[in-house]
Design a protein around this nucleic acid. Structure first.
Length: 406
DNA sequence: AAATCGTTCAACCGCCATTCC
DNA sequence: GGGAATGGCGGTTGAACGATT
């Protein structure tokens, strides 16, 4: 056993002896750091579980590896990101999604954890402020299919790619986003041949020029075709839509065999938000309980009510940036009229039998385009935001009034 | 000065893939 | 082939800290 660094072996940690060591958690001490560094100097990286055996450290191998990788290994750059680094991160994220390790590989001396923290902080801030996550030039890069390629080992996603055919068996299973996005489901839905379809499933107007009005043009990859789903950013797009299906059907049967259901429900949710804002401005409040019942305490069932809160709280993501976030969203939802819901459900039914929660029969995205037009007629975008704003501030949210995403 | 709020960052957790036996 | 061990990755948490009220 190596006693590098002179640190106290126990250091407040119970030690049950060989095989019964209670591993220490929490912040690392300088002595532990020194011990770990000495271990790596002697034995090299890897075999991290041996650290515990060969030194007095009561840390699990994972913890050692993490400490080394994030803090002790040489050539680490500490301190704030430079402007160039920040820009590179943004650019990489626009292409890779939440692939922190791969992003870190492009930023010498930076760790995936740092990048992840940076991005999540930035994400929070930008969402709160309703700002676009990606600067226009970076999204232009996307538009012109000139993805940033800092090195040869970074795969180039020449998107937008034609969306893969829907309703095909998955050919690969996304590693993370799948789990997160559909963690609410006992039955995992199938989806088309790549996670890209989750984003294809975002509101139709994001992918066409037909709606909303031409003044609004989304190029934000977050909404658009993207190789990977940043799962903590797109629950709105995927999982929330799914949850809505189950709630609309109200049969507890998560029979979601179609990625297109997700598409449709996502669009539906977007439209419902628009509808709720409009409806709320015209009608006296009339409560309608779309939220999970109180006895539904698990996350699955709360997903529906949470979906609106989430959307409101992630303004830059969901595009309805003018909507009131969080609590007010659920209030707005409660004020939605039955007939509005009925219209939405009828619309959904016509489009893909969404209202009954069964498998969607929509087979093409064109249907969604058409239906969005129908819905546009149902809830026309206000032509004069000021007028509506005077009626009710909430109505200030319309497609025209949205802050530019990109 | 105290309380509250927001941000940052280090660390942990769970899952998955790979390797080893 | 199968299970265990190991490493890697992404998501999440919570403490520390500073700013604001």
């Amino acid at each position: 056993m190596i006693l590098y660094g002179g640190g106290a072996p126990n250091d407040g940690v119970p030690d049950g002896g060989e095989g019964g060591v209670v591993l220490k958690k929490g912040p690392w001490t300088a002595a532990e750091d020194e011990t770990l560094a000495a271990y790596v100097r002697e034995y090299g990286e890897g075999n991290w579980n041996a650290v515990q055996k060969k030194t007095w450290l009561a840390r699990c191998g994972k913890s050692c590896r993490l400490r080394w990788a994030n803090h002790l290994r040489p050539n680490l750059r500490k301190g704030s990101f430079t402007a160039d680094e920040e820009r590179l991160i943004i650019q990489l994220h626009s292409q890779l999604g939440n692939k922190w390790a791969r992003m870190a590989a492009q930023l010498p001396g930076r760790t995936d954890n740092e990048i992840k923290n940076f991005w999540n902080t930035r994400l929070k801030r930008f969402q709160r402020q309703g700002l676009p996550l990606y600067p226009p030039d970076i999204t232009q890069n996307y538009h012109h299919q000139q993805p940033y390629t800092p090195s040869s080992d970074l795969p180039v996603f020449a998107f937008p790619q034609p969306p893969p055919p829907l309703l095909q068996p998955p050919t690969l299973r996304p590693k993370r986003c799948y789990e997160t996005a559909f963690s609410c489901l006992s039955t995992k839905p199938s989806y088309a041949s790549s996670p890209t379809n989750f984003l294809v499933s975002s509101p139709t107007f994001l992918h066409t020029n037909s709606y909303p009005p031409s003044s609004y043009q989304c190029t934000n990859p977050v909404y658009s075709v993207k190789p990977e789903l940043p799962s903590n950013q797109i629950p709105y797009s995927a999982s929330l839509g799914v949850s809505q299906v189950s709630n609309f059907s109200d049969n507890g049967n998560h029979n979601l065999d179609s990625g297109l259901q997700i598409s449709t429900c996502q669009l539906l949710e977007d439209l419902m938000e628009e509808a709720e804002a409009l409806a709320d401005s015209y009608r006296a409040p009339k409560r309608r309980h779309l939220e999970a019942t109180p006895e539904d305490n698990d996350t699955n069932n709360n997903f529906f009510s949470g979906s609106f809160r989430h959307c409101g709280s992630s303004n830059s993501q969901c595009s309805l940036q003018g909507l009131k976030p969080k609590e007010e969203d659920s209030l707005q939802m409660n004020t939605m009229q039955d007939e509005d819901i009925a219209k939405l459900l009828d619309w959904g039914s016509e489009s893909g039998e969404i209202s009954n929660g069964q498998s969607s029969v929509i087979t093409t995205e064109e249907n969604l385009v058409l239906d969005s037009h129908q819905f546009a007629l149902l809830f026309p975008a206000d032509e004069d935001n000021n007028n509506n704003t005077n009626k009710n501030p909430r109505v200030s949210c319309s497609w025209d009034n949205l802050p530019e995403i990109c």
